[in-house]
Nucleic acid binder design. Structure first.
Lengths: 365, 365
DNA sequence: TTGAAAGCGCTAACAA
DNA sequence: TTGTTAGCGCTTTCAA
């Protein structure tokens, strides 16, 4: 009823609101943070003043006084990957609902950049941290310990049990893929892996494939490491096809590499899966839409995000939480895998399973 | 040489460092922020103490005292889109290099969520804001004005000239696409647009297509609005194909919709481009890798990010900046477009241009 | 239920 | 070049 517009320029403070509502700053503070501790009449007066002045809490001042920023940091490898975007989005939703703001930092797979990003987040006073993967520079863990920041590792399951984590068993997922190919009768299986340095997900996937092969007294018919891009998938396929005799199947470190590999196979006149079986990891939406549909492993990435968020939120509320949470993964068999053309395997008659709309099957891990 | 480990738990403060280095807190503050104002010997002593104690600046305290957070906020529609990821990544790099931290918020195309996200960022004390698009709730601009936060709009070029912006001419891009199809001889052209509510990019693309058609006394042979997902692209194609006579070409609101449309066309037994031409916008990496390669419009998204960053950085440094910056877009003709089967157009003999490795051509806007 | 007052950890005059 | 000191805007005892 008084000022038609909040005054521009100089930001309003708690004291301004207090003056206008004719109460103390302490009361305004309570009205904003603990409304149930303030009488209804006073509360209303304060709220009116807040609106009239266009008051917005000064975050830094609140953080300094309360020693809480209501901010949680997440350090992820890259924003480019839609799979991480799923998880990130779930984190954001969960934290938002709990009154926390997510501070996002990415490092593009550069360990030094990850240390810097983590330092910056800690400096910004995040109340907790979500890290992706188990492989981190010791400095990261040192800073976390020095400030005693609650944290959780995600996407990978920390088998050492040293760190709280919620993630997947990437090795079991890879074994499932390899066994699927072996069951189809493939014996010459190559791999286009992601870059394994500082990336235990990529490493575990290689290890899983090797383990499955070894169990049948076989070994990889070639393995190259590539960054997670379509172009790298093409290069990778060219590389693994250069060996003689050719592999009949290629396990790719993720769906992006697999899509690149399929494109390259087609460019070289090879038909997938008739001439070559190809698999991925992640089950991106596009994996089911292309022709042929991609055989891959589905990870519940959004659930991972909400579980990870729930974990740190519980820690912040001093509630008990399991140190380790493992989420199930699922082999999804589509049309990019089939028995090899001239199969000598005993099980070449096995037909790829297809289940449900998305062709899901075989729960793993 | 003294304490082997930084003490855990209680975080170190400037005073702790000062005590250990036997200087005042003011000197430590200077050593950290303005090292050239401190004598080399003192500087060294301070640095030694900082390392020994594992001291990390308390961001909130610094922000409160200096009235600067060295933080810049960006509000984007979604993290799911790799195209925005390009821009975001470029922002992050540019701000990082300038000593600023990027605070990222997404709203999934929900206007109320965008208002909340903007409020949160302002509350966190961002020194500047980057907003995506020109269409925003009035409350967003009100908050920005009240706090006098420097800002820039991106991705869309603000034709009204009211707001600082760096972006593209989406309408011209759409006209180029439509004209390409018209030049090929298409006369029945339908559109699968993005959701146009609160999204002037989507709106401008529809307007551009309509304008190009109108210039030849034609109008759209059907238009549906869909969210930017593959599944929606499939649905959209089903919808526009339901009209009789069928359109011979479909302009899609972005590449994701276009990929969905192509998948659906193939599922219905239609060959692209023989039976149907399909176009997109954005030129995602996958657009060039699929068969057929997608005819689309390339936007320099990373450059957009660095330009937008440069804009707000210049504003923060009180340097002069142009109010409006328009970046060029490019029609990229690939294999998803061709002359219609039974062309009645006079220009049906025109062959799609193909230039360079990526098939780029025709600079627009 | 409300108010007074003491900081939270740092920066930035100003003084020396 | 360095130190002293007064806040920055808020929360949080403690007392009323």
């Amino acid at each position: 009823m008084n000022d038609p517009r909040p005054p521009q320029g100089q930001a309003m403070t708690l004291a301004d609101v207090a003056r206008r509502a004719k109460v103390s700053t302490a009361t305004v503070s309570r009205a904003l943070s603990l409304p149930q501790m303030v009488s209804p009449a006073t509360l209303r007066r304060v709220q009116t003043a807040v609106v009239a002045l266009g008051y917005v809490t000064h975050g830094a001042a609140r953080a300094l006084a309360s020693r809480r920023t209501h901010t949680i940091g997440a350090v992820i490898p890259t924003l480019d990957n839609a799979i991480f975007a799923n998880t990130t989005h779930a984190l954001q939703r969960a934290f938002d609902a709990a009154g926390y703001t997510l501070l996002l930092a990415s490092h593009e797979f550069d360990p030094a950049a990850e240390v810097r990003a983590t330092r910056t987040l800690i400096q910004r006073g995040v109340d907790a941290l979500v890290l992706l993967g188990t492989t981190h520079d010791p400095e990261v863990f040192r800073m976390i310990a020095a400030r005693q920041v609650p944290y959780v590792l995600t996407w990978a399951y920390d088998t050492s049990g040293q760190h709280p984590s919620v993630g997947f068993d990437n090795r079991a997922a890879a074994m499932a893929v390899a066994n699927h190919l072996l069951d189809l009768g493939h014996r010459r299986i190559a791999m286009i892996a992601g870059l394994t340095a500082n990336n235990e997900r990529a490493r575990e996937r290689v290890a899983g494939v090797k383990a499955a092969l070894k169990a049948r007294r076989l070994s990889l018919a070639g393995c190259v490491e590539k960054p997670f891009t379509l172009a790298a998938g093409r290069e990778g396929l060219r590389a693994v096809l250069a060996t003689a005799p050719r592999p009949t199947a290629v396990v790719c470190g993720n769906d992006v590499l697999a899509l690149g590999a399929i494109a390259q196979a087609q460019a070289q006149g090879l038909q997938v899966p008739r001439d070559l079986s190809v698999t991925g990891f992640d089950d991106m939406e596009i994996a089911s839409l292309l022709t042929p549909g991609l055989t891959t492993v589905h990870f519940p990435t959004a659930e991972l995000g909400s579980r990870a968020a729930a974990h740190v939120l519980a820690r912040l509320a001093d509630e008990p939480v399991p140190q380790q949470t493992e989420l199930p993964v699922e082999l999804v068999v589509r049309e990019s895998t089939a028995a090899p053309k001239l199969s000598q395997g005993k099980q070449s008659s096995v037909i790829p399973a297809k289940a449900g709309i998305h062709g899901r099957s075989k729960s793993v891990g």
